[in-house]
Computed example of a mutant assay.
Amino acid sequence: MKSIAYFEAKRIMLPDSEIGLREIILRNFPNTEFVTAAADIIFLPKDAIKQAKKIISEEKNLNNNTMLLIDGIYLSDQNEAIWKTLKQNPKVTVTVDMFYCGAIFVRREQVKEHFKIRI
């Protein structure tokens, strides 16, 4: 919720399975639009991390201010390997590792950086 407010996100991409999260977002941010492309924030739950590479590769999904938030980046060895691969993607300029989840940004004007935050 804090990311939605901080980034003033209006367009959010969520998997169809995240009905409860969708309701919570709409309760707190009633003007939010749920989209299938060109989102301000894209959320992938821990069981959907495999989709991240495809989302990043498709230009229609991202703009210069899009944040891709991935849950469960260390939940399994497979998720951790995917996270490491995503960090190396040339389109990805900033990653924020918060242990339980990770954020990816594709800001073209920014130098590639990786942050690890203990929360």
Rank of each mutant, 00 (worst) to 15 (best):
I4N: 01
S76K: 01
I117H: 01
L68G: 12
E109D: 14
Q78I: 10
A81R: 06
I42Y: 12
R118S: 14
R107W: 06
T66D: 07
I4A: 00
A81Q: 11
P45R: 06
K91S: 15
L75V: 08
R108L: 12
N65H: 13
A37D: 15
A103L: 15
I12Y: 11
V111N: 08
F43L: 09
E58H: 09
D71G: 04
R22C: 06
D16C: 02
D71S: 08
T32W: 13
V35A: 13
K60F: 07
A9W: 00
K10Y: 00
E80M: 07
F105V: 05
E59H: 15
R11N: 04
S17F: 04
I49Y: 03
N64F: 13
E18W: 02
F99C: 13
V106Q: 09
F99N: 06
E18C: 05
E113T: 07
A5D: 02
S57L: 13
V106L: 13
I55A: 08
E113K: 06
V94E: 15
G20A: 05
E8K: 12
R107L: 07
I104D: 02
W83T: 02
K2E: 06
I41D: 08
M67F: 10
W83R: 06
T32P: 04
I12K: 00
V92M: 07
D40Q: 07
K112L: 05
T93K: 14
S57C: 10
N28D: 12
L68A: 05
E113V: 09
P30Y: 10
T66M: 02
F7P: 00
G102S: 13
S57D: 15
G72L: 02
M1R: 01
K91L: 15
Y6I: 03
V96P: 02
L69E: 13
T85C: 02
I49C: 14
Q78F: 12
W83F: 15
I55H: 09
I104N: 05
L26N: 10
I24G: 03
I4F: 00
D16P: 08
A39W: 11
Y100Q: 13
F115N: 07
T32A: 07
Y6M: 04
T66Q: 04
D16V: 04
S17N: 05
D71E: 14
P90D: 09
I4G: 00
E59V: 12
Q78C: 03
S3L: 05
K53R: 12
Q78S: 12
L75K: 11
R27V: 07
T93N: 10
K2T: 03
K116M: 06
N89F: 01
N63L: 08
A37V: 14
